[in-house]
Write a protein that binds this DNA or RNA. Structure first.
Lengths: 159, 159
DNA sequence: TGAAAGAGGACTAAAATGGTTCTATATGAA
DNA sequence: TTCATATAGAACCATTTTAGTCCTCTTTCA
């Protein structure tokens, strides 16, 4: 399946929670309790997000994590990238020679780059602030409404 | 990682090859040889694609596979869906109760639907005919050029 | 009627993921 | 200054998923 890992899933949940109270600091135990996820995993994910530059951490008693940037400046793509590395649907993206045995003959190789680009673009469209803002009537996000209301327009803009 | 399986990867390679000669029929052994992929896997994938309605098959000697629809009417999303089921980045998409233990409390649940929708939309934008047409100068697909040349426009159209 | 091709499904080995645990380091407070 | 608590980092194992193989059955044409 085209699935993001549970780590990313949890990561987005965590970061969204932080985004709801920007500037404020949360300890891993607090966060785990509030989001109702197992502490060890929450710890692991917070560390990764910090390493990725999305969170700022403070050690020691009274330590904790804070968003490194305002919610509007963090996208779903950022979170996923921090937790899983570059977003790529296929292996033949990272230009590491040898990662694909067919690289010399594969006529589709250049195309994959674009497919990945499209997905990456789609995910970087969605910011944290978008994720936490109250649901508009009908439970539809703006981005969703656009995609559904004017598929032709979207498609043509993507072509 | 957000990765599609190798099956989808191979599947797209195979279907692209078929798209290059629509109407024509190919046997699994031929295809495997031409695309330089192991026969058993090619067989498996072709079966799945047939079951998914993307290919038409003919049994017996002189049997083989043909595209069920013109290349322009088949998208990358179609292929992936045929091989891996519905495109969903997270589990909480299929409304199967119990698939997510947090479903009753998760405030992000409705949002995920939209994230998935965006990705699905992105992949259904790309048709087989787009994949096989000769590369435009600069090795950039139209869709790619749009995303890069006018990111603001694309973004606003998605908002 | 036999050879060749697809349909279908069971099965195995390898890799990725999820999750845990342990040690080291930093910080604030008694 | 020392203790309790928090993050940093890395090793580690069990489970699941994926990749790939193999076998049997049915269909079709020569």
């Amino acid at each position: 399946m085209i699935r993001m890992t549970r780590q990313s899933d949890y990561g987005i949940v965590l970061v969204s929670h932080l985004a709801a109270y920007p500037e404020r600091s949360f300890g891993a135990p607090d966060l785990a309790a509030q989001v109702k996820l197992p502490l060890p995993i929450v710890r692991k994910i917070l560390k990764l997000l910090t390493r990725g530059g999305l969170l700022t951490s403070l050690r020691g008693t009274k330590g904790g994590y804070t968003l490194a940037r305002p919610p509007a400046a963090i996208s779903v793509a950022d979170v996923v990238t921090a937790l899983e590395g570059p977003i790529a649907l296929t292996e033949c993206i990272d230009n590491t020679p040898g990662s694909c045995t067919r690289e010399t003959i594969c006529p589709l190789r250049p195309r994959w780059q674009h497919i990945n680009q499209v997905v990456r673009q789609a995910l970087s469209t969605i910011s944290l602030s978008e994720l936490i803002e109250p649901l508009p009537p009908g439970h539809l996000l703006p981005v969703f409404e656009a995609v559904h209301a004017t598929p032709a327009a979207v498609q043509s803009s993507l072509r």
